[in-house]
């Protein structure tokens, strides 16, 4: 039983990261209907930036703040320079450009910081407390930081004029433009925010998965799965979906382990993590493409 609780707790912790990635994906999707395949590699690159700043002697939180800021700038620049000219281009062009970005970030991280695995410091102290057998301090920290960031984002979108303008630009660009919202810049800001969220997610998960250019590949896939489960057009749904696939992933491994112990039959385990994500993605896309909370888009033809 304690093991099950442990699995759920660590599922929630990794779910927090998936939720961040899913949210970053949804932010870009709602505004532009693009699935950013480079999101994971961008987050990985930001994490390397953060690591580099820590190596320079900065404290963890300062380094993270600067890295997030830099990522914001990079995100804005990518939107302005690379994607803006492609507005209205076919889906294939956009997908190919994203794959190009993915390749560039991946290889640049490898070229600058080498492919060897690096350890990444955890900002949370190693303390024991009641229930620390079930959930470690870093995992709690991950969840807390994520929830704090998500709340801040929620407040930003709900209570500030800029947030309102960004939502308007995403939902109805034409009308938003008519009331004086600079839609182009709102899209760029969305990209910047998504990149910054990715930086935080990367820095939170790096102490667990270690720092290397491939660190985000499975996380990105789970982020996609989370975003799809919750509904790719719904930010709240994406966060919920992220936590859900996190728990689901660990439960699948747990029950796979259990069946192996009880019946001696190996069905599924940690080695099939990505296959589980694949199955989630395909199932949702086939059965309920709108996800749990997404709105069904009807097209007038």
């Amino acid at each position: 039983m304690e093991q099950l609780l442990q699995q759920i707790a660590s599922g929630l912790a990794s779910g927090a990261i998936y939720a961040c990635v899913a949210l970053a994906l949804v932010m870009i999707f709602t505004a532009t209907e693009h699935l950013n395949f480079a999101q994971g590699e961008m987050a990985m690159f930001s994490t390397y930036l953060c690591w580099q700043l820590i190596q320079f002697g900065l404290g963890f939180w300062t380094a993270l703040a600067i890295a997030a800021g830099l990522s914001f700038v990079i995100g804005v620049l990518i939107e302005r320079i690379i994607l803006r000219p492609l507005a209205g281009a076919s889906a294939l062009s956009v997908v190919v450009v994203f794959i190009g970005l993915l390749a560039i970030f991946h290889s640049m991280a490898g070229a600058i910081w080498s492919h060897t695995i690096k350890s990444f410091p955890s900002p949370f102290p190693e303390v024991s407390f009641a229930g620390s057998g079930i959930i470690g301090p870093h995992q709690i920290g991950m969840v807390v930081v994520t929830i704090a960031m998500l709340s801040a984002l929620f407040a930003f979108f709900r209570f500030t004029t800029l947030g309102l303008a960004m939502r308007a630009a995403a939902q109805n660009p034409t009308s938003a433009r008519l009331v004086g919202v600079n839609v182009d810049w709102m899209l760029a800001l969305g990209w910047g925010l998504a990149a910054a969220i990715g930086a935080v997610a990367g820095a939170m998960v790096a102490p667990v998965v270690y720092l290397e250019p491939n660190m985000m590949s499975s996380i990105l896939l789970y982020g996609f799965a989370g975003a799809l489960v919750g509904g790719i057009s719904s930010p709240g749904g994406a966060v919920f979906g992220g936590f859900m696939v996190g728990v689901l992933e660990n439960l699948v491994a747990y029950f796979g382990n259990l069946t192996e112990k009880t019946f001696g039959v190996y069905i599924i385990g940690n080695g099939e993590k990505l296959s589980v994500a694949l199955i989630i993605v395909i199932t949702i896309l086939t059965l309920k493409p709108a996800g749990l909370f997404g709105r069904v888009i009807t097209k007038r033809v």
């Binding site: 450009v97 794959i99 190009g100 970005l101 390749a103 991946h106 290889s107």
Partner: peptide, 9 residues
């Protein structure tokens, strides 16, 4: 891969 990426874009 950097060349791949730049070339693609």
């Amino acid at each position: 891969w950097t060349i791949y990426g730049i070339l693609l874009i």
